[in-house]
Design a protein around this nucleic acid. Structure first.
Lengths: 349, 349
DNA sequence: TATGCCAATGCAAGCGCTTACACGCGTAAA
DNA sequence: TTTACGCGTGTAAGCGCTTGCATTGGCATA
């Protein structure tokens, strides 16, 4: 069955012209039979299709994109594929695109802006008809470039009414504020936060701002928030937790920028012999599978990833079909209250 | 900074010809300045490059691929992006390719053969110069197609000396046999296994075979292996564990087809009030981060994902440069013994 | 001075496809 | 019967790039 490669002389790959010859029609007709079958006579079409079968013809994508100036491809640059945070949303995005005959090109930037720019350029050079990007923040040149190239672009995983660029997502500040309120509502006063690096990451920044807002609201001095910036990853979460407990041993609740960090923190706590949630509460953000799996299960912000992906695709499709122009759409998050958040231990400050 | 789209009239995108005109040279010279700079005079090259800058020229990828009959792109189809199993390996693969000026196109098949075939065709139609595929098993037509198209293809995440197709990976049977031996070595006699569906998945099949081999070796009747097939996912793991304990309550060790399933099983056990590893041992496969994070930490098979990815890329690069032909390369796995495996509880059968 | 060679450049033919336009024919309206 | 459509098809001009081949002008060699 499975044969070694190179065993067969490199057979000529059939082209449109071959099919045309085989079916006794012009290349135009073949092209139309494939792309707009309704424009071709019944019988002719049948003849063409069987020629396609006979020859094992498959259209050359590059040639098609070049000639048609449309690739039926949309690109997305996600910060990472190392964890499942974007997986569900992108999966839904892809499924919805597929329904409309579009293909998805995925690139990842490792949370680095320079790489993201490069990826964006690559996707555009590859002929992506539209782009989905995560978060607002990137060099203005990037937006200019996209704009000049006429590539419709949607921002996802973020929503900010200050920003003008079309986006589909949720308000990271508000979402985190709601969670922090709940934490404070459980009696916690000494808060700490483990965040992703904020410099190039507006969502991380917003989430920290959200915690601060809730503290302010409750009359807690925001300066007392112990803040650790690190990169997303289990280890970092664990390390950050140790650092927090060293710096501010009276901390009773640690809010994390995402679920991965939170699960890392959980592990850090375990290693230190801290009982969660008995002595320390921990929260996450995203509500990925991991949050339910973790022991104790994680209180976190539920993000409607799938809906976001699906809607993003729908909007992009509408734009590409000229049926709509880009609009901004806000989604709501909710709180998933689970075991890792409990009342402040009696006796703690 | 960030402006709405459609605000600027769709400016003409600069082409090679524009650059040529701007620099006062022929398009051939521009092309060469970009691709084989050493063939162009010093001063000319400088002039061209500054024209490129001035116009903000970026080559059209499709046109380039069409003309050059080479896309400098390699494709990979992975079964899923929903969990981190392939992430690290693919990351390494991508990094290594990048070092050689190649871009990676990633597609995922949701563990479905029909989708995988389609993705492979798409990748080839897009002009992928080479492909990386996971596991050997797929329709013979697919191999024929690839062969006929002359697209070098490497199989990864599997190694089987029976197969002739070039591969880079590890022997799933042996790896699992080694783990199962360890489990049996801990005194376990009543084994169960949670596997991915085996029909379209040779790796899953091999892992089950590995367990059976170890049982046979130890004189245990392989018929006594309680086997559940399900799809990869936390929930499935938990559900499968419940099913196992219902069917075969005297089970003392559950071997899982991968870490995700195992962590799910861990959770299932927790829900049933079973102590792991006190009453029940659980093992995984892959050794992703999750294995360390889990509580208790997971005994599993360590797979050298990064090395596999890197080597795969190196081999493909060598093939594309005509420096080597595809060879099969076996990697070694090792056992990561952690808390989830312990001696059979005294009193158990 | 004549000869040969090489480096630098240009010319132009594609790569495989789409699509505006033209054409011929049968049918319905005048 | 003429006129006007409209449908199905063919013709051919590109899309933006690469590359084999031809051309040019130095420069070293004879």
């Amino acid at each position: 069955m499975i044969r070694d490669q190179n065993s067969v002389p490199p057979a000529r790959i059939p082209t449109l012209a071959d099919v045309a010859r085989h079916a006794g029609v012009s290349t135009a007709t073949v092209s139309r039979s494939l792309n707009t079958p309704e424009q071709v006579g019944r019988e002719t079409r049948a003849r063409v299709l069987s020629a396609v079968q006979d020859l094992g013809y498959a259209p050359n994508f590059n040639a098609r994109a070049l000639a048609a100036k449309r690739s039926n491809t949309v690109g997305v640059v996600i910060p990472t594929m190392e964890n499942a945070i974007f997986a569900r949303g992108i999966q839904a995005f892809q499924e919805e695109l597929g329904l409309h005959g579009l293909t998805l090109l995925i690139a990842s930037s490792s949370y680095r802006q320079d790489l993201e720019s490069r990826q964006i350029h690559t996707l555009v050079a590859r002929g992506a008809d539209a782009l989905l990007l995560i978060g607002y923040q990137r060099a203005p040149e990037v937006y200019e470039f996209l704009n000049q190239r006429g590539v419709p672009t949607l921002v996802a995983w973020a929503f900010d009414r200050q920003q003008t660029h079309p986006a589909i997502g949720f308000d990271n500040v508000q979402a985190m504020t709601a969670l922090a309120r709940a934490v404070i509502g459980h009696g916690h006063r000494r808060l700490a936060m483990i965040s992703a690096h904020m410099r190039d990451n507006d969502r991380a920044r917003d989430r920290v701002a959200g915690v601060r807002a809730a503290m302010q609201e409750a009359g807690l001095p925001t300066a007392e928030l112990t803040l650790i910036e690190t990169h997303y990853g289990f280890d970092s979460g664990a390390a950050a937790l140790r650092e927090i407990m060293a710096k501010a041993p009276d901390t009773t609740a640690v809010l994390c920028g995402n679920d991965v960090l939170a699960v890392g923190a959980l592990q850090g706590a375990r290693e230190m012999g801290l009982d969660v949630p008995g002595q320390l509460s921990v929260t996450g953000f995203d509500d990925i599978d991991l949050a339910t799996i973790a022991e104790p299960s994680l209180t976190t912000v539920h993000v409607p990833h799938r809906e976001m992906g699906r809607r993003a695709a729908q909007m992009l499709v509408a734009i590409l079909n000229g049926e709509a122009k880009a609009r901004t759409h806000e989604l709501q998050t909710s709180l998933s209250l689970r075991q890792s958040l409990a009342r402040r231990p009696t006796g703690a400050t």
